[in-house]
Computed example of a mutant assay.
Amino acid sequence: MTALPPRILATQDAEALMQKLTARHGPLMFHQSGGCCDGSAPMCFPRGEFKVGGQDILMGHIGDDIPVWIGAAQFEYWRHTQVTIDVVPGRGAGMSLESPEGVRFIVRSRIFDDDENALLEAAGDPPTGDALVGQTA
């Protein structure tokens, strides 16, 4: 069986910052903003400090333990896109944990090719309903 392409990735620089933030704040989570706060920036929070709701979908995890959520309406636009969280110099306008560090998380993306889309669709990824919507992780 062919492995499914991951929906969410992170660069080495972003992962290094996540490790630093985890050491300072404990387990992390991300929510991909749909336009408020800082455009459509990935917002990093201590896990549990951002309440995911019934309209949020779990895109996947960075590493084994950092969940990345997105609003269902936003996901519909991005469902054919692989998202990579990166970090760049500068300060975002949001309340994301990296703000005091003088950097900000951003997303880079690419469109899945036809074969990858077919694999994801055949696997029912992401599952609909309660499998991924509004669960705390």
Score class of each variant (00 low, 15 high):
1 M>D: 12
2 T>Y: 10
3 A>W: 03
3 A>L: 12
5 P>E: 07
6 P>V: 01
7 R>K: 15
7 R>V: 13
7 R>P: 02
10 A>D: 03
11 T>N: 10
12 Q>A: 15
13 D>P: 02
15 E>K: 12
17 L>G: 05
18 M>Y: 10
18 M>S: 08
19 Q>V: 15
19 Q>M: 09
21 L>H: 07
21 L>P: 05
21 L>F: 10
23 A>S: 12
24 R>G: 04
25 H>M: 06
26 G>D: 08
26 G>R: 09
26 G>E: 05
27 P>K: 11
29 M>N: 00
29 M>S: 11
30 F>G: 01
30 F>C: 01
32 Q>L: 14
34 G>I: 12
36 C>Q: 11
39 G>L: 07
41 A>P: 00
42 P>K: 11
43 M>D: 04
43 M>A: 15
43 M>V: 05
45 F>A: 00
49 E>Y: 12
49 E>K: 14
51 K>A: 14
51 K>V: 06
51 K>H: 08
52 V>H: 00
54 G>Y: 00
54 G>W: 04
54 G>F: 05
56 D>T: 04
57 I>N: 08
58 L>K: 08
63 G>H: 04
64 D>R: 10
66 I>A: 07
66 I>F: 12
66 I>D: 02
69 W>P: 00
69 W>S: 01
70 I>A: 01
72 A>Y: 08
72 A>F: 03
72 A>L: 12
72 A>G: 09
73 A>L: 11
73 A>R: 15
74 Q>E: 09
74 Q>M: 06
74 Q>W: 04
75 F>W: 14
76 E>K: 14
77 Y>S: 10
77 Y>V: 13
77 Y>P: 00
78 W>Y: 15
79 R>A: 12
79 R>G: 01
80 H>M: 12
80 H>K: 15
81 T>E: 15
81 T>C: 11
84 T>Q: 15
85 I>W: 06
86 D>P: 02
87 V>C: 07
89 P>W: 11
89 P>Y: 09
92 G>F: 09
95 M>Q: 08
95 M>C: 08
96 S>N: 04
97 L>C: 01
98 E>P: 06
98 E>C: 05
99 S>A: 14
101 E>D: 15
101 E>V: 13
102 G>P: 12
104 R>I: 03
105 F>G: 02
106 I>R: 14
106 I>T: 10
107 V>C: 12
107 V>E: 14
107 V>S: 15
108 R>F: 01
108 R>N: 11
109 S>L: 04
109 S>W: 02
110 R>A: 13
110 R>Y: 01
110 R>L: 04
111 I>W: 06
113 D>T: 02
117 N>M: 13
117 N>V: 13
117 N>W: 04
118 A>M: 10
118 A>E: 14
120 L>T: 08
120 L>I: 14
121 E>V: 07
122 A>F: 03
122 A>R: 05
124 G>S: 02
125 D>S: 10
126 P>R: 13
126 P>V: 14
127 P>F: 09
128 T>W: 00
129 G>H: 12
131 A>I: 01
136 T>A: 13
137 A>S: 08
